[in-house]
């Protein structure tokens, strides 16, 4: 069976959508030469300079130009090399793009995608390793996608490009090298807003996004050896959030561990936990627990970085604690 890497899946989605719709255009730093993560490799050669535009180091101009092009009827896909750099163009994302449709009474439409590499674990340090999907989740008006598999990377990015709303796609940089079976056919689409149940078990629900889904799956394997069966839910999108899938699983298992890489002090897991508290309280058999990124800037040395990141071991320990009736201290202070 043919294999596909997560990295190749990005290019496959872009290639598919650019071939299908000539209004899809790319812009970003070094995208023409394939980008520093080689996720846009070959696209300029195939589609030419009118479709793939190398920009100056100007994140505000990149995000703003995407907004303008979308306003004028194109479907731009902008790249922010590292999602940490969103901080330099947050005005464009949070104040302009997210609000344009609403505050003009629907006169402006923003069919655009901004892709950014996200997440840590590679020793890139505090300014190139953050998981910042929680920044976006504070802002109504943008959709948030973060795939965990090559298959989803392809299908969700394609769906994001076709979506009529602004979508931020967070590509976890530790996943680029991961491989899976290439989806059959050469057209692939995964709808936004549908979580995937990666594994089925009635004792505990493990909820992950992007790289933490793999941690949940590993933890589930370890838990199975102890006779604990886990549901593993891959949220895939934070907005729209498939709360129905989360609630259905929590009502069945009564125990939930939420695994997020962004800092726990205000991560997306807090929003999911609040939904569970408000809407599934009577079905819960234990408190909802979060395994989150540490509430410190990300350090570099291997042991230190590992200490502040979620891991399969931490997830398994949290889940075991819940099934044993203990409330584990999962999140580092």
């Amino acid at each position: 069976m043919a294999q596909l890497t997560f990295r190749e899946a990005v290019a496959a989605a872009l290639d598919q959508e650019m071939a299908r719709d000539e209004t899809v255009v790319l812009l970003g730093e070094d995208v023409g030469s394939g980008g520093v993560f080689k996720t846009t490799a070959g696209l300029k050669e195939r589609f030419g300079p009118d479709r793939v535009w190398d920009t100056p180091i100007s994140e505000q101009a990149i995000a703003g130009a995407a907004m303008g092009a979308a306003t004028a009827g194109l479907r731009p896909v902008a790249e922010i090399m590292f999602s940490d750099f969103y901080a330099t163009c947050w005005d464009q994302v949070a104040n302009e793009i997210a609000k344009a449709c609403y505050m003009t009474g629907g006169q402006l439409r923003m069919p655009l995608v901004i892709r950014g590499t996200n997440g840590g674990g590679l020793g890139f340090g505090a300014q190139h390793s953050q998981s910042v999907e929680n920044w976006a989740m504070c802002v109504p008006g943008i959709k948030i996608v973060s795939p965990s598999t090559p298959d989803d990377m392809w299908g969700l990015l394609a769906a994001a490009i076709r979506d009529p709303e602004p979508v931020l796609v967070f590509e976890h940089k530790a996943l680029f090298g991961t491989k899976a079976e290439r989806p059959a056919g050469d057209h692939h689409l995964v709808p936004l807003g549908e979580a995937a149940l990666r594994r089925r078990g009635d004792d505990v629900t493990l909820i992950g996004l992007a790289r933490t889904v793999g941690m949940c799956e590993q933890a589930a394997t370890a838990l199975a050896e102890d006779g604990i069966a886990a549901d593993v839910i891959d949220l895939r999108c934070l907005v729209p959030l498939d709360a129905a899938t989360v609630l259905a699983s929590a009502r069945r298992t009564g125990r939930v561990v939420i695994v997020e890489e962004n800092p726990g002090q205000l991560g997306w897991g807090a929003a999911v936990a609040a939904i569970l508290a408000e809407e599934a309280f009577h079905d819960l058999r234990a408190p909802v627990v979060r395994v989150s990124g540490g509430n410190v800037p990300l350090p570099v040395a291997t042991a230190m970085e590992a200490a502040v990141m979620p891991s399969a071991e931490k997830v398994a320990a949290a889940a075991r604690g819940l099934t044993e009736g203990r409330i584990p201290a999962a999140t580092p202070a």
Partner: peptide, 17 residues
């Protein structure tokens, strides 16, 4: 100043088309 990059993007669309 937030809209100046947007204006540039609209002009970019005109240029592409």
């Amino acid at each position: 100043g937030g809209h100046i990059p947007t204006a540039v993007g609209m002009a970019w669309a005109s240029r592409i088309r």
